[in-house]
């Protein structure tokens, strides 16, 4: 099988580019801790309201952990609890969320907080809220007739 010289150049360049992309995201994920949300913990979706931490939705200060706060959300058709929350600027926060019924999305517009809430599983994301402002939370996975009405809000305040 003959491969033209220029095609070899192109394929080497293209493959090298892809390797660079992979290395950048790989190093960022595995060494700098920027993994996509991949929590392995499970929960009984029908008992969410009675189980910690979901029995106390909202922003909770925690001690002795790598992060300062836990921001707990419970999703169900078609709302999030809490419906609005304030977070202090610069807080290192673990966002913890789950769903009581069907699959929902949990997307904070304009940020990297964007995860699926699968029934039976807990979703987590660790981040530092380093910009002030109002951020819209919305459901970005179809969940039924009221899908587009599902919303909440995070206010990052000084």
């Amino acid at each position: 099988m003959h491969i033209h010289k220029y095609e070899k150049i192109w394929l080497i360049f293209g493959t090298a580019t892809l390797l660079v992309f992979l290395s950048v995201v790989g190093v960022s994920a595995f060494y700098l801790g920027n993994q996509p949300p991949s929590c392995m913990a499970t929960v009984d979706p029908e008992k969410v309201d009675t189980l910690a931490p979901f029995n106390k939705p909202g922003l909770n200060k925690v001690e002795g952990k790598e992060w300062d706060y836990e921001l707990v959300f419970v999703a169900s058709a078609f709302n999030y609890t809490p419906g609005e929350v304030e977070v202090p600027l610069g807080a290192k926060v673990k966002v913890i969320a789950t769903t009581k019924d069907v699959i929902h999305g949990f997307s904070v517009a304009g940020t990297n907080i964007n995860m699926m809430l699968t029934p039976g599983y807990i979703s987590e994301y660790l981040t530092t809220f380093d910009k002030t402002g109002e951020f819209l939370i919305l459901c970005n996975e179809y969940c039924g007739a009221g899908h587009h009405m599902m919303t909440s809000k995070i206010k990052v305040v000084e």
């Binding site: 033209h4 220029y6 150049i9 192109w10 360049f13 293209g14 580019t17």
Partner: peptide, 15 residues
């Protein structure tokens, strides 16, 4: 080396 230089330029623009 002569006739595919436009192709090479095109794919690099794409890259």
């Amino acid at each position: 080396s002569s006739s595919l230089k436009g192709t090479l330029a095109s794919v690099f623009l794409l890259g």
